[in-house]
Simulated assay, not measured.
Amino acid sequence: MYQFHILTGLIALYVIGRLVLPLPWKTGAKCLAALGLFSISQHHLVTRTWFGTLASPEVPFAGIVVLGWLFGALLLLASFLFLKDVAAALLFLLRKAGLKWSLPSSHARWAGALSFAAFALSAIGVWQSVKVPEVHTVEITLKRLPPELDGLRLVQITDLHASKLFQGPWVRAVVERVNALNPDLILVTGDVIDGTPDVRAQDVAPLADLKARHGVFAALGNHEYYSNLAGWTQKFRELGFNLLLNEHVVIKSKGRALVLAGVTDRAASRFAATEPDIRKALAGVPKDAPIVLMDHQPRGARINAAAGVGLQFSGHTHGGQILGLRVVSQIVNEGFISGLYQVGAMQLYVGNGAGLWAGFPVRLGVQSEIAQIVLRATPGKETSVQAQ
């Protein structure tokens, strides 16, 4: 994971070279600014060394908020400078072609404007990330869903990332908002926590109060593997989660059946743990029953579709967190980033997540969410969905 620190360091050096060094400042001021920017880029290295881990920085809430604001501003500033450089390169080519266009204003004014925008937007983004998520309701027509189950309501909670940033009172507020929906099923699709069971015990305690008519079911996310997988597996069961680890259950309601399955996460291979196995998860499912799957990462959705899954719930992407920059996350997740997709005969819902990793607590244009899904039965028809 030290490649992460190298990458963030290179981003800081880019900002220093393109923003700080050309400024008409004295050498001492430039050195201080450069040192500050590079320190911001390496704060994760400091926290993982002395204050917890990279996945779970154990510093006070206010510290995480300030560090997140500064780091978010650095990334936004680097993005703005990159776009400015691209624009300058295009204008250079236009001037070569005979058009006398150029970027207005001095470098100092550009630097001031871009810095102000980056720090202001990052502050807004941190606020957007730490607020209690709103409920987002979506109706999905599920092939083979019996008419008797039309209107079945599922609530997906994904990517809570309970941590020093998202502590017990915040988790309690999420639980209360979920329970107020009076759902038939609650699906917890991974990345519930950051940190070990003993450190997070009070923060996850409110999850024991989640209630749904047919129960609370969960699958593991990659962050569960980073912090004592065996301990969290036991803790989740103590909280009342029905863990589905490459297995399924049959939910019966009004005399009809719905298959709910779950697979382990792709991170398992790095920890010598049980890897996801969709065929094992679906072994022995009732013929013609609709199949709903929990798979934390949307990558691999096409494999799950080919196995006969009708509807998959995933998280992991946090919706990309920032409009524009989300394209990077979209690429590494096979194009699936947020919302509803049609994948062959299967539908895939990728939740934006309730929380996110405390190391980059910024959301801009991508809202956190508690997803309420209302299943609809339309025999012989499927919802036509545009990939987002």
Rank of each mutant, 00 (worst) to 15 (best):
F4Q: 03
I6W: 04
I16L: 03
A34L: 06
G36M: 05
I40S: 05
I40R: 00
H43P: 01
H44N: 14
T47R: 07
W50F: 14
F82R: 03
L93H: 03
A97P: 02
W101C: 12
S105E: 09
S106I: 09
A108K: 12
R109A: 08
A111P: 04
G112H: 04
E139G: 02
K143R: 14
D150W: 01
R153D: 11
L154E: 10
R177V: 03
V178I: 13
N179C: 10
L181G: 08
P183T: 13
L187Q: 07
L187T: 11
D203T: 11
P206S: 13
A208R: 15
K211W: 06
L220Y: 02
S227I: 01
Q234L: 04
K235G: 02
F236Q: 13
R237W: 01
L239C: 07
F241H: 07
L245G: 03
N246Q: 06
H248E: 06
H248C: 07
V249H: 07
A257W: 05
A257T: 14
R266C: 02
S269E: 13
A273G: 01
P276V: 01
P276N: 02
P276F: 01
R279M: 07
A281Y: 10
A281D: 04
K287H: 05
V292Y: 05
D295Q: 12
P298R: 03
Q312H: 00
Q312L: 02
G320A: 05
I322A: 05
R326K: 14
Q330D: 05
Q330Y: 00
F336R: 13
S338N: 13
Y341T: 08
L348K: 05
Y349E: 08
F360Q: 08
R363C: 10
V366W: 10
Q367I: 01
I370T: 10
I373L: 13
I373K: 08
I373V: 15
A377S: 15
T378F: 03
P379S: 14
